[in-house]
Simulated assay, not measured.
Amino acid sequence: MIKQIIELSRAAGKAIMQVYTSEQPLVFNKKQDTSPVTAADLAAHQVIVSGLQKLTPDIPILSEENPPGWDLRQHWRCFWLVDPLDGTKEFLRHNGEFTVNIALIENSKPVMGVVYAPAMDMVYAAANCKAWKVDASNHWLELSVKESNPPLVVVSRSHGNNQKLHDYLTQLGEHKTITIGSSLKFCLVAEGRAQIYPRFTPTNVWDTAAGHAIAIAAGAQVNDWHKKSIDYTPRVSFLNPGFQVSLLF
């Protein structure tokens, strides 16, 4: 099924790029939490939800753009977790660092994930404990984390200026840093280009699930600051705790 999910992510990416490359201004509104939402978010949402309903009609869907109420999802054990356009701020800045995120959650764990960067036409995917990078020519490269000394730390382009992160990097010792938007940060660790992704500012479950699946399939760990693995058990709040993506030691 991973190939079908990849094709679905590409279809959503095509809908996003139609808005992204339009000569019309990128009009957006703000949701209740003040985060931006554009026509591209909504178009990708429709493509993904329609495709998943046809592919797996018995598996419920939790999408950022239409999250079901707690009464409907509190007993879910298997569900799709979707961010139709992760990195809307990067989309609005026109820097290409935005993604389509689709993950399958089973018993609180992300067991399948696809992250598609439509502006780069690059797919990252994970299933059956393996992770791959798939280019525009449909060449599949299996991913594995790689050590580096000093380590390369990837930080959020939109949320990288905070005191906790500054203190963390100071205590880390010798290192290099790179900034990038969206769930591509997980993917850089998965493919061995970076070794650590620390996160102190808020994220929601749909921001992380697909990247989480890819990172752990490539040999990384995704733990909160108490060294407990991030899980996706349905809960009232969609917020994640702070976390760190890093190599297994």
Rank of each mutant, 00 (worst) to 15 (best):
T88K: 05
N128Y: 11
A127G: 10
P202W: 09
F79V: 01
D33S: 12
H45S: 12
F98K: 05
I61C: 09
N29V: 13
L26V: 04
G192H: 13
S108M: 02
S35D: 07
S50P: 03
A218N: 04
L62V: 07
L152Q: 14
C187F: 05
E142W: 07
K3Y: 14
P67H: 08
S108A: 08
L188V: 10
W76L: 09
P150F: 15
L42V: 14
M17L: 08
L248W: 03
T177P: 02
T88N: 06
L143Y: 08
H175D: 14
A127M: 11
T38E: 10
V154H: 09
S158R: 11
A209M: 03
N223D: 10
A190M: 06
I178S: 08
K54V: 12
L72F: 13
E23T: 07
T34R: 13
V189L: 09
M112R: 07
T170V: 13
E23P: 00
P198V: 14
K185P: 00
L52M: 13
L42E: 08
P202C: 07
A40D: 02
E65R: 09
W132C: 05
E106Y: 06
W132G: 03
L81M: 06
I2G: 11
A217S: 09
N29P: 06
A210K: 01
L92I: 08
V245A: 05
E147M: 15
H75Q: 11
V49L: 08
W80Y: 12
E174L: 15
F79P: 01
A39I: 10
A190D: 06
E174A: 15
L239E: 12
W80H: 03
K54L: 13
L152K: 15
W225I: 09
S63Q: 07
S237T: 14
E147R: 15
K176L: 15
S182Q: 01
S148C: 15
A213D: 01
N29G: 12
E7C: 11
I180R: 11
K14A: 04
H94V: 03
V205F: 03
Q46I: 11
L85D: 00
Q171Y: 10
V82P: 01
L188G: 01
S22R: 01
A217F: 07
F91H: 00
N240A: 04
Q171N: 15
F79E: 04
T34A: 11
L239Y: 05
Y116R: 04
Q46D: 11
Y116W: 08
S63N: 07
S182A: 13
Y168N: 05
T99W: 01
A125H: 06
P67T: 12
Q195V: 15
H159V: 12
H175Q: 13
R157K: 14
G113H: 05
I180E: 08
V145A: 06
V236C: 07
A43W: 03
W70L: 11
W225D: 05
A44W: 05
E65Y: 09
I59F: 08
L92R: 05
T179Q: 13
T21M: 04
K228S: 12
Y168Q: 07
A103N: 02
V49I: 14
A15C: 04
I196R: 10
L26P: 01
N161G: 08
K176R: 15
Q24H: 03
R193G: 10
N95S: 05
K14D: 02
L42F: 07
T201Y: 06
K164N: 14
M122I: 06
